[in-house]
Design a protein around this nucleic acid. Structure first.
Lengths: 303, 303
DNA sequence: TGGATACCATCTGTTTTACCGATAGGAGTG
DNA sequence: CACTCCTATCGGTAAAACAGATGGTATCCA
C-alpha cells in the first residue's frame, strides 16, 4: 500500500545524488535504471519539490535537492543508529549513567554530586550533557539520557516523572557600557524592545518558538550559555542569567543588573530531576538524584 | 523487493507501542490486525531484538523495545523534519545564516564579527551554535549550518572546503589544590594517568572514541565547555583548555598550568572556517568568513 | 465455572506494488 | 553524422502486502 516517503526512496535519492547519475545509482544499488527514475519521480511528487534538474544528459541536484539531501542523510543516519543500538543490545552492551542538565543549574551542586558519584560508583561511566531549554527534556524523552535536570517543561509531558531539587534565581543584566545600563529611573518594556535580547536557544524542536522570556523583537539566538555570557560581557545585548553564574561579574562591575519596571527583576525557576515513567532510574541513577537533593538542600538560601 | 527496515514498520512499531495493542494499532492506522502482527514480527527478525513480550492478552514492550522506540521516533521525527523543510521550500522559506563554532574558538573574535554582521546585515537572522569536537563538522556536513568554525577535522572529509583563520593555544591546567599541582619537578604521563582527565565530548558519532588528547584511562566526559571549566575550578580533574579562556584564572591563581614532562605544555590547534563544497556560502556567509579572518588577523600574536 | 469477548499468530487467496526489460527521445562526443 | 550513454515511459511479470478466516489463549463477568 503506497503511502508516504520510504527509506528506499531516500537511499535511492542519496545514491543518485552521490553518483550524479540515475544509471550509476542503479548500478550501485543493483537496481534497474527505471527503478531509480520512478523512485525519484515518486519522491518529488510526494515532497512537492523538484530534487534534480534534468537539462543535460546527467541530472543535477537543485538547491532544494541539496538541502533535502542533508535531511535524507539524517534520516538514514538515525536509522543506522537504531540498527547499531539494536545490534549492541543483541550483544549485551554495557550500561552507563547519562544525565542531561539544564545549563542554568548551579555548577557547584553538580560538581559536588559528580565527585560523590565517582566515589560511590567508581566503575559506572558518567556522561554529562549540559543542554538548554528543550534539549534536556528531549534527551530524556528520547531515551538518550536516563535522567534530566531541568526547569519547567516546555511541553506538558505526563510520561515524565519529576522530583523538585531547588529554585534558581534569574537576573536581567547588560554590560555597564550598554545603553540600557545608562537609563535613569528604571528600564521599561519599550526600552528593552529597542535593544537586542540575547536569548538562549537549543537545537530541538521542543522549544522552537518558545524561548525563555523573549521580550524583544530584536533577539539573537545562541545555543551556548558560555557564548551568551561572552556576548553579554562584550556589550552586544541584554538578557536573563542565573544569579550564581554572573554573581562575580556583578560584584566586579563587568555586568550590571537592569532595574526593570514592568517585570520582577529577579525571577525564580524551579529545577527538578526528571525521568521517564516507563524507565525509572536504576540504583546509580536513583543515588545520583538523592545526592543532588542533598547538595541542593545545603545550597539553597534561607528566607 | 524486501530489504531492510521500512518506515512503515517503524510507524507500526510506534503505533503498537503507544496503543499497547496490535489490534488498536491496526484500528489507528486503518490496517488489519494481521498486518500489524506480521510487520512487528518482521521488524524483530531484521533487528535481531524482541520488541514486545507476548505473555498476556496485550503485548508489552521489552526494555530493549522501549529503548529502540526512542530511536524509531528519532527516525520518524527526522523524516518529519525533511518533509517540513520540503514544504517550507515549496512555500519559499526565508533564509538565515547558521554558523556552528567550536567551543575553543576565541569569543572575542566571534563577538566582534557578530557585531559587525549585525550592522552590515541587519535583516538576516544569525543563529550561532557552539559545539565541541565533531559537532561542528557534523552540523556542516548535515546541512544544518552553512558554515563551521572548527579545528582539525575528526574525519578526513573531501566534501568540506576549509579556510584557515587562526591558531588557538591549549594549556593543561588543574586547580591549585589538585594533587597534580603539588608535584615538584614536572608532571609525567604516569602522574596524569593516575588522575581523572576532564575531556570535552559531544553528542555526535563523528568523534566517538576520538576525544581531543585523551591521556588518562580515568576520564570524565563533559559535553559542555562551561561544565568542564567548572569541574576544573572545583578541583575534580585536569585537562586541556584554550589559553584565552583560562588566562584570567591563571593570573588569579584559580587554576595553574601543569608543567608536563612528556608533551609540549602548550599545544596549538589551527582553527578554520569550513563549508560544504557543494553548498558554498552566499554573500552573507562569505562576508562573515572574511570578517572573521580580519578580526583573527588583528588578534593573532606576533612572533 | 462457563460463556462471551478480545487479543495475537498463522495461513491462504487476492490485490497491489515494485521491478525489469524494451523502447523512444535526447544529450554529448569523436 | 554515427555512436554511445543517459532519462522517461510503458507494459508484463513477479513479489510483496493485504485482509479475511481460523485456531488458540487470556481476560472479564455473571
Amino acid at each position: 500500500m503506497l503511502e508516504g516517503v520510504t527509506l528506499d526512496q531516500l537511499r535511492i535519492f542519496i545514491a543518485a545524488a552521490e553518483t550524479h547519475s540515475f544509471s550509476a545509482a542503479g548500478r550501485r544499488l543493483h537496481r534497474a535504471q527505471s527503478v531509480i527514475s520512478q523512485a525519484i519521480a515518486g519522491l518529488e511528487g510526494q515532497l512537492g519539490v523538484t530534487l534534480f534538474r534534468r537539462e543535460g544528459r546527467y541530472p543535477e541536484l537543485t538547491e532544494q535537492g541539496k538541502l533535502l539531501l542533508a535531511d535524507a542523510r539524517c534520516v538514514t543516519a538515525s536509522l543506522a543508529a537504531l540498527k547499531a543500538r539494536a545490534k549492541g543490545m543483541a550483544e549485551g552492551l554495557e550500561p552507563e549513567l547519562s544525565v542531561a542538565i539544564d545549563v542554568m543549574f548551579p555548577m557547584s551542586v553538580l560538581t559536588r554530586t559528580a565527585a560523590d558519584f565517582s566515589t560511590h560508583f567508581p566503575v559506572t561511566p558518567l556522561r554529562l550533557y549540559v543542554e538548554a531549554l528543550g534539549g534536556v527534556a528531549k534527551a530524556v524523552l528520547d531515551g538518550q539520557c536516563g535522567i534530566g535536570i531541568m526547569g519547567s517543561l516546555p511541553l506538558s509531558s505526563p510520561s515524565l516523572i519529576t522530583e523538585r531539587l531547588l529554585p534558581v534565581q534569574i537576573v536581567f543584566v547588560a554590560a555597564p557600557g550598554h545603553p540600557l545600563a545608562q537609563i535613569q529611573g528604571g528600564v521599561t518594556g519599550e526600552d528593552l524592545a529597542r535593544h537586542v535580547q540575547l536569548v538562549l536557544t537549543d537545537r530541538t524542536d521542543l522549544s522552537k518558538g518558545r524561548e525563555f522570556s523573549v521580550m524583544s523583537p530584536r533577539s539573537w539566538r545562541l545555543a551556548d550559555m558560555g557564548a551568551k555570557h561572552a556576548f553579554l560581557l562584550a556589550g552586544l545585548g541584554w538578557g536573563g542569567m542565573p544569579l550564581e553564574m554572573v554573581a562575580r561579574d556583578l560584584r566586579e562591575g563587568a555586568l550590571v543588573e537592569l532595574p526593570l519596571l514592568d517585570v520582577p527583576p529577579r525571577e525564580q525557576m524551579a529545577m527538578s530531576a526528571a525521568y521517564r515513567a516507563d524507565a525509572p532510574p536504576g540504583p546509580a541513577g536513583r543515588w545520583f538524584v538523592e545526592q543532588l537533593k542533598h547538595h541542593a538542600g545545603a545550597a539553597e538560601p534561607t528566607g
